[in-house]
């Protein structure tokens, strides 16, 4: 397992390099002088020259690239043009908000999706199967913004059960330590706030989790159906094993590979694509952060935001690959 992990880590290097190269060239893809585009038509020559120098655009391109990599290796993502603050410090609260929301959304999606898929496969062609798969079809086809608005209308406005927007109660805000509010409130022993944070997470969590849930349910079902027809499942039954263990032990572990692949891809998509949900639910996440940067033509922030999301995507894929090997012993030897 260790050698496999190392091997996988080594293969990450070219991937990360390529990713940095693409992100780096982003600013150079702007036609004309990037500094001028960033500052707008009315900018003075001096201001444009100063920004060019700040961004290092006056140096030859290969030097710029080496500088950029050096900078990244020091954990420095540059400065925001708008706020002048270092991006590496500024980005974390937003990122933490998105990570927290994505984790909650994925937990909802996995718990419900995987189990719905398993039960659908187990009782193939039963009413449960038909209803679950119909709901899954509706779930995949549902526009997130519409679902979010309907949730808000039903649960927050009509029944007044849950808050409409935000991460915490603005009259009693969470004191941030890690910016992961669930963790922070627990660290401070503020269980009332913890409950409050959970309440704020439910609606956006479900809105964000619906599509992955539906996809996971469908993949789990088809993967389970295939596995349940295999010879070793017949062997397990011939041993006298009960249906529950045949399904949840012998079938599930074999059926997990495609399911985990989808979970990994969907998690990556959530981190980058949560912008609709974040906007509707007033969630101060990375999507909102980048959206704001785009509006302000804050190129270093856009660049860094993309870099961070892409890196997380790559890391999630690494975790997925390691999970493959942990689940299926044959993979390590290939």
């Amino acid at each position: 397992m260790l050698t496999y992990t190392i091997r996988r880590l080594v293969t990450l290097i070219p991937v990360l390099f390529g990713m940095i190269l693409i992100v780096f060239s982003l600013i150079h893809a702007i036609p004309g002088n990037p500094a001028k585009v960033i500052l707008g038509q009315q900018a003075t020559k001096e201001a444009v020259a100063a920004l060019s120098k700040d961004l290092g655009l006056d140096k030859p391109i290969h030097i710029q690239f080496i500088d950029y990599i050096k900078q990244l290796l020091h954990g420095d993502l540059g400065e925001s043009i708008r706020t002048k603050a270092p991006i590496s410090e500024e980005i974390w609260p937003y990122l933490a908000a998105t990570i927290e929301l994505s984790i909650v959304a994925m937990i909802i999606a996995i718990v419900i999706g995987v189990n719905a898929g398993i039960i659908s496969a187990w009782f193939q062609n039963s009413w449960f199967d038909y209803i679950a798969m119909l709901l899954a079809l509706i779930g995949v086809s549902m526009p997130i913004f519409w679902l979010g608005l309907m949730e808000q209308y039903t649960f927050a406005i009509h029944w007044d059960l849950l808050p409409t927007t935000g991460r915490d109660n603005i009259r009693d805000p969470v004191e941030a330590i890690t910016h992961l509010y669930l963790l922070d409130t627990l660290l401070q022993g503020r269980f009332d706030q913890f409950i409050e944070v959970i309440k704020h997470l439910i609606l956006p969590g479900f809105a964000l989790g619906t599509i992955p849930m539906a996809i996971i349910a469908r993949i789990t079902r088809s993967s389970m159906l295939e596995v349940m027809r295999s010879d070793y499942i017949r062997t397990a039954r011939a041993k006298g094993l009960g249906s529950f263990w045949v399904v949840y032990k012998h079938s599930l572990k074999n059926a997990l590979i495609p399911v985990i692949t989808v979970i990994g891809l969907q998690t990556g998509l959530l981190l980058g694509g949560a912008i609709l949900t974040e906007t509707i639910f007033g969630w101060p996440g990375i999507g909102s952060y980048i959206y704001e940067a785009i509006q302000n033509r804050d190129y270093p922030v856009i660049q860094s935001g993309i870099l961070v999301i892409a890196s997380i995507f790559v890391l999630i894929n690494l975790v997925v690959d390691l999970l493959y090997a942990a689940i299926d012993p044959r993979i390590k030897y290939r």
Binding site: S230, D231, Y232, R234, T235, A236, A238, K239, H250, K253, N254, I327, D328, P329, R330
Partner: peptide, 14 residues
């Protein structure tokens, strides 16, 4: 008890 024709696929690989 029963044993089957295909030993290659009759044991659970994981």
């Amino acid at each position: 008890a029963m044993i089957f024709q295909e030993p290659m696929t009759s044991l659970n690989p994981v």
